[in-house]
């Protein structure tokens, strides 16, 4: 039957553009509508993304990998007791549950408070954390050590929203919190990790106090570039005493290998 479709579907002669983007371009058309092939491919991608949302974070494997790198690891849980509750009650995902909070509070205080605490949360894609969190820390830690940042424990939080990091860091007395969290899965990227940096974290803060680096994954923003951006933001935040919308990310200015031209095929000269 495929021969019949070939005659009916209008193909787009710009398929080679697909090498430059994972966007669903050059799909062709049946009349003006989506042809059967790409229509069903989309439906499959949606079914897979739905599965990713409900995948549970393997905290044991993650903690083992972190400890093997010398991190002091604490596991915790948000006040959202299950995935369905988590999805409908973001307020619960922003708070620790009582046992987790107590465990942090009774922890012996560090001799000097940490400059930065990393909080790792499953967010909406535990897959993103399993694939990217450790590799990103491997990329950023050498620079932090070289610049003499005092790095506190890594706290792994299940059923976490970004703001749970504020409570964690407040209890631990850290000056900066960096939250690594699974972003909501897209059809083409069920494994995208976000990084949120906040200076002077405390419970009840809102998003204007944070700086975000998003889409950290193998096929998105590379670990070394994300690490460069984070280090820039942390350094500027500490120097200027602020984070969030008032702290602009001008890291590209400092990066030697960043893309600084908008040139592309649409604008090529003859």
């Amino acid at each position: 039957m495929s021969n019949d479709s070939d005659a009916i579907v209008v193909k787009n002669p710009w398929g080679k553009l697909r090498q430059h983007t994972s966007a669903r371009i050059a799909l062709g058309r049946s009349g003006t509508s989506l042809p059967t092939g790409p229509h069903l491919e989309f439906q499959l991608a949606h079914a897979r993304a739905r599965n990713a949302v409900h995948h549970e974070l393997n905290t044991v494997a993650l903690s083992d990998a972190l400890r093997a790198r010398g991190f002091d690891v604490i596991t915790a849980h948000s006040a959202a007791e299950s995935r369905p509750v988590y999805l409908q009650r973001p307020d619960k995902g922003r708070r620790l549950d009582a046992p987790s909070r107590s465990a942090l509070e009774i922890r012996p205080a560090d001799t000097e408070p940490a400059d930065v605490v990393f909080v790792i949360g499953d967010g909406l894609s535990a897959l993103a954390i399993e694939e990217n969190a450790v590799a990103f820390l491997d990329a950023v830690m050498p620079s932090l050590k070289a610049d003499h940042w005092r790095v506190g424990p890594v706290v792994v939080v299940s059923q976490a929203r970004v703001a749970v990091g504020d409570e964690v860091a407040e209890v631990l007395g850290a000056k900066i919190v960096v939250v690594l969290i699974g972003e909501r899965p897209g059809l083409s990227s069920p494994d995208s990790m976000g990084i949120y940096m906040t200076l002077g974290p405390r419970s009840g803060m809102t998003d204007e106090s944070r700086n975000c680096i998003s889409n950290v994954r193998v096929e998105g923003l590379r670990y070394d570039l994300a690490a460069h951006k984070l280090l820039y933001l942390m350094t500027e935040a500490k120097k200027r005493g602020l984070s969030g919308v008032l702290l602009k990310d001008e890291a590209e200015d400092l990066s030697s290998n960043a893309v600084t031209t908008g040139q592309n095929f649409l604008l090529s000269a003859d």
Binding site: W14, L17, R18, T21, A23, I25, G262, N264
Partner: peptide
Amino acid sequence: QPNHPTDDPTGIAASIFDGLMY
């Protein structure tokens, strides 16, 4: 809306091209 995860100019241009043709 020609968004691209790393703001790659050629990737963005590819989606712009696709959109304009439609």
